[in-house]
Nucleic acid binder design. Structure first.
Lengths: 348, 348
DNA sequence: GTGAAAGCGCTAACAA
DNA sequence: TTGTTAGCGCTTTCAC
């Protein structure tokens, strides 16, 4: 490893001038700066971040904690965050909690030893408690909120997105609309459920408790919930299903197939989150799409903005969702203008 | 932040004893150690990693560089690596190169400032050159090899996996088997191509250059290549396609659909890499599956093993692939026992 | 605009 | 087994 001292020597300046030339260029004469930069380049100098962090009591790193790296939505969030961080010369520590508060706690502890400048996280259900660990680190919550006071957040309009989805189903003529909700200790699930309720209420439809089941945000959870809902007799079985996230939607579709229900003739489905899977499955899924990459990118830009300007007030942003009508929704019984839809033969 | 000094004070020992109690417990009397641990716990002490890294000239971190975090195969590799690292109390710096050598170079430079103990990477085409930057850091290449001497590697048996896939197609009766290969400056593409060639040769089938097209490992690349291959007249169009990775396979299937080719009646397809998409699409894809999570987990375990034991020789591991026959392959023309396959009506 | 010197929090000789 | 001390490589006062 090349040290700054060697760079200084080569540039014929003192150690402190060399340091300044690299970190505070405006404090150094143009000519000197040029010599130092040239020397650093020639030697392939890369600053020792440990030394720098120790001295500054902070490092040019950000923590990023997501709950499921295998979920494409979260992977995309991560990419957005990382791209923005790289743009500003920040390095990201990525942790994955698998939705387990204990892993979140460990991640936070590890993180604080690394003196990050800030933290972006998709909080687990115990985040409010866990976040005590990191003191007054600037924090931005992504995708959902833990309710911790003083943290910034950037989320989508879950309520509006859900409402639109359910209104679409109602407009198609559905009256028994089931929902597979996530865990109610997670804000997105609560908000999406609210959207469902509001849409029903505004349309004058009764809320039927037995049409709402909960899943754990994973494929299997959606599958189990959908199976329970869809294996009822046709008279009480929902004719449409609104599913609270991408993974559970996969499970719901698989379950419908197992039961021999044709989509959308026997069952309409709307999912939350778009994905390649949703786009290319047959029939293509009608979904509430989230601006996943932008959400991550903007989260990072926002947090870095706060770090730079040090604004004291906390910000809570909401991005809009986009409702994409594709092929998985139709009137109940597949009726279009009074005709039964022909069976779909689209491959894939 | 609580410092070690405060822990030492509370435990009534010197700073160095406190340090030893935490990092080298065997060098401290049982009773003393207990007191220190208790004090640390009580104060919520977390070591300052910057100070520790500076002093030890190395940090308990690993670098992980993958080429496409949005590709589920790579996301799974990353999860495997991270889980193993966490098990050993290591923290991972994750970088994403998007297959761009320049991003890889930047990642390596950033990384070396952080004094990692080791590096796991999926190399880009210019990795051999870029890896000069990090001196004699222990390195393990994952999934593919850059040919850099002295680095460990863990890959799958690409040649064997491909050969099995193509032999399967030949056994079904296919004679015009196309392949969509990746970039030939990446080792997996070369090896998978070799498997294809060997299978043809051993079956006494001629190698037809015009049946082999290249893609860039992304969906669009596969789509373009497949379109070129499949829009030929039926007499020269391949009756089966072997595609070199998961993303390109998606493109190939989409392209076949666009052209109105039914799978497997008009076209058999085998992909490399399994995925949920491959499992749930209709018809379900026949694939060469890789042990993705294990590959990542084992990569990390292997590298950490080397760090601990300091063995000098370089290791090159190969894991086996699994060939999964599903519904996307059939005899040419969809003949089974001399009968035309009935059209598939499976939804999804 | 530049240099000398102190010190960030920890670990690892060296002594006792 | 424990304490004392030096110093990792950098940034940042404070002088000049």
């Amino acid at each position: 490893m090349i040290h700054l001292e060697e760079v200084a020597k080569l540039a014929q300046v003192s150690l402190s001038t060399a340091s300044r030339a690299l970190s505070k260029p405006e404090l150094v004469a143009k000519e000197t700066r040029k010599r130092v930069l040239e020397a650093a380049r020639k030697l392939g100098y890369e600053p020792n971040q440990a030394a720098r962090s120790l001295r500054q009591r902070s490092s040019r790193t950000l923590g990023l904690i997501i709950t499921d790296i295998l979920n494409p939505f979260h992977a995309t969030l991560a990419k957005g965050v990382q791209d923005a961080a790289e743009k500003h010369n920040y390095t990201v520590f990525l942790f994955n909690t698998d939705e387990e508060p204990e892993k979140e706690r460990r991640a936070l502890n590890t993180l604080r030893g690394h003196l990050p400048k800030g933290l972006i996280l998709v909080p687990t259900s115990k985040a409010q408690e866990n976040l005590q660990l990191v003191g007054n680190l600037p924090i931005l919550e992504l995708d959902r909120s833990s309710g911790t006071p003083g943290v910034h957040s950037i989320m989508v309009d879950n309520l509006g997105g859900s409402k639109t989805a359910v209104q679409h189903l109602i407009a198609l003529g559905h009256r028994r609309i089931g929902m597979i909700v996530g865990r109610m200790d997670i804000s997105t699930a609560v908000e999406r459920f609210q959207g469902y309720c509001e849409a029903l209420k505004e349309a004058g439809l009764p809320y039927q408790e037995d049409l709402v089941l909960h899943g754990n945000h994973r494929e299997m959870g959606g599958r189990i919930a959908a199976h329970a809902l869809l294996s009822r007799p046709p008279e009480t079985r929902p004719t449409a299903l609104f599913v609270g996230n991408n993974e559970m939607t996969v499970g719901a579709v698989l379950s419908a197939n197992e039961l021999g229900l044709r989509i959308p003739r026997d069952l309409s489905i709307v999912g939350f989150d778009d994905s390649r899977w949703a786009r290319t499955m047959s029939p293509a899924l009608t979904v509430v799409a989230q601006p996943d990459y932008d959400l991550g990118f903007l989260a990072c830009e926002t947090l870095l903005g706060f770090l730079a300007r040090g604004s004291p007030q906390t910000t809570n942003l909401r991005l809009a969702t986009t409702f994409l009508v594709r092929e998985s929704t139709a009137p109940p019984g597949g009726l279009v203008n009074g005709l039964v839809l022909s069976e779909r033969r689209i491959n894939i």
